[in-house]
Design a protein around this nucleic acid. Structure first.
Length: 497
RNA sequence: GGCCCGUUCGUCUAGCGGUUUAGGACAUCGCCCUCUCAAGGCGGAGAUCACCGGUUCGAAUCCGGUACGGGCUACCA
């Protein structure tokens, strides 16, 4: 959606509260903000909304920053990088809020309220009792003479500060890039609190003061904020600041269409990172959950996201997180990697993490061959070590899968196959121990033995890896090495008929 | 209670009044490839576009209502 009133350079922001880890919903909001900024040559601001001191922690802030970095969402202004609109932590902006609130009071756009919480609750109950459609604040203290209010404040009477919704405001029209124009009636809005009695600003106030001060032009956030937006518009107007364009994006739900929570599995970004997902794939998947450039593309690299992302392709309805599709996309990114890169960035770190191989156990070429063999068989990074684990077992400790043994080893002819393999492979020396040579050596065996290929190769496979599945027999044995191969085949003969 | 939002294959979506016998992707099923498992290739099934009315020559697309789901209505964010 374009707006001729908003042709200033794009400035967007992601403003998480450090009350927990960065969850997938927040991550997607961050991705959209980032992509929108990049696609429009704008500025992406990161601000930490830590006005709730009881729930905000420094540790959570660090966790969020780390998650943002892992996601590759670089911010132009914010923690650690600074910027001319700082500070970027709300707890460091308290003076700004106080000043703004006092200015609003002085200008008659806000007023002191001396109602106690008990009084407010009683008023609300009474309204409910009467069946009033409006159950908000009755604007009791609006009528108090400003001079008197000032005196009571000076005398130390507990008070809050409320915004004054103009009597004749009429419709508040929210311009929303994904929902279009959303109309609210100002009469339904109450004079909500902008400053608590403990001297701290409320979210709806602090956010607007900051967004206005930081020149934010587009506010992309979760649609749980849509209903609060007209209230915030009132604050913008009281402040005399231009209202930005909003874009309220839907929630991400679990498989049962309920709010995503622990029982749906992983909910935080770092859990996905630790589970072996690639940052690129994760960003790709999340971006597509509610946004589609054309309805055809599934694999959309972040460069394309940064080029093409647009708010008018963002869908309005909630999206259910589908781990299967995430897996598919992750596999796509993994498979698209070069063998060298897969070896260095995925295989070696995973082998090291699994305690199997610190990278010094084989030659460079071996790891590349392992990548060729295992890469197409991996969906997650963490699959790599699981795929290769049998290569690292001691020959006499290799565990034989019961079903595979029964099906392929403890069978008539299996022993013949193993004997023939020993003979054929014995012809090869270490120097010629390559996938091609191994396959060439084993290739004539089925015909010689008068047996099917499976009858010959499967016993060899089970003998060497312990199970019925592995990469091609040539690659598998090449990776195992001549000595281990022959030793394992020898050992398996004891299990064969 | 009031206000607001949403509703296209199981899932993510395309669709912005005729080009639609509603397209793609994941998942699923089948076939091919094949020494196994993957990967890859090909194909199938799968959506009366929540429901009911209206506008129109013509509606998934526009309007109204209903249902269901969600949000806000806090001295939470």
């Amino acid at each position: 959606m374009s707006d001729t009133n908003h042709n200033a350079p794009v400035r967007v922001r992601f403003a998480p509260s450090p009350t927990g880890k960065l969850h997938v919903g927040g991550a997607r909001t961050a991705i959209y903000n980032w992509a929108f900024a990049r696609a429009n040559g704008g500025t992406f601001v990161l601000r930490i909304d830590d006005t709730d001191p009881t729930r905000s922690t420094e540790e959570n802030t660090q966790v969020i920053l780390r998650a943002m970095r892992w996601l590759g969402l670089d911010w132009d202004e914010g923690p650690e990088v600074g910027g001319e609109f700082g500070p970027y932590f709300q707890t460091k902006r308290m003076d700004i809020y106080r000043e703004a609130a006092e200015r609003l009071v002085a200008e008659g756009n806000a007023y002191y309220c001396f109602c106690s919480p008990e009084q407010l609750a009683a008023d609300r109950d009474a309204a409910k009792e009467r069946g009033d459609s409006f159950q908000g604040y009755q604007r009791t203290c609006r009528a108090i003479d400003p001079k008197e209010a000032q005196a009571r404040v000076a005398a130390g009477e507990p008070h809050t500060i409320r915004i004054k919704v103009p009597e004749d405001r009429g419709d508040v029209v929210v311009r929303d890039a994904v929902h279009g124009k959303v109309v609210f009636n100002a009469r339904d809005l109450d004079d909500f609190i902008i400053f608590r009695s403990d001297g701290t600003p409320t979210y709806n106030f602090a956010t607007v003061v900051d967004d206005a001060a930081m020149g934010i032009t587009h506010i992309i956030r979760g649609d749980d904020h849509l209903s609060n937006t007209p209230r915030q518009v009132i604050v913008y107007e009281a402040l005399g600041a231009p209202t930005p364009i909003f874009a309220h994006i839907s929630m991400i739900l679990g498989s049962d269409s309920k709010k995503l929570s622990k029982r749906h599995g992983a909910t935080s970004v770092e859990e996905y990172r630790d589970a072996g997902y690639l940052s690129d794939a994760f960003v790709n998947y999340l971006a597509l959950l509610g946004w589609a450039p054309d309805g055809e593309s599934t694999v959309i690299p972040r460069e394309r996201l940064a080029r093409e992302f647009s708010l008018d392709h963002v869908s309005k309805n909630p999206a259910i997180m589908d781990p299967k599709k995430l897996d598919f996309i992750n596999g796509e990114y993994l498979h698209a990697m070069s063998d060298e890169r897969f070896a260095h960035d995925i295989l070696l770190p995973q082998l090291a993490a699994a305690g199997l191989d610190d990278g010094s156990m084989h030659e460079e070429g071996w790891y590349r061959l392992a990548s060729v063999a295992f890469k197409p068989r991996c969906t997650l990074s963490s699959d790599a070590a699981a795929q290769a684990h049998y290569l690292y077992a001691a020959d006499d400790e290799l565990v034989y899968d019961e079903k595979a043994t029964k099906r392929w080893l403890a069978k008539q002819g299996a022993r013949d196959a193993l004997e023939a393999a020993t003979a054929a492979l014995g012809q090869l020396d270490d120097a010629s121990w390559t996938p091609a040579a191994i396959e060439a050596a084993l290739d004539p065996l089925p015909e010689q033995l008068g047996m099917g290929k499976g009858k010959v190769f499967q016993p060899i496979r089970v003998a060497c890896v312990g199970g019925a599945a592995s990469p091609g027999i040539g690659e598998t044995l090449a990776l195992l090495g001549r000595t281990h191969t022959l030793a394992r085949i020898e050992r398996a003969k004891g299990l064969a008929l």
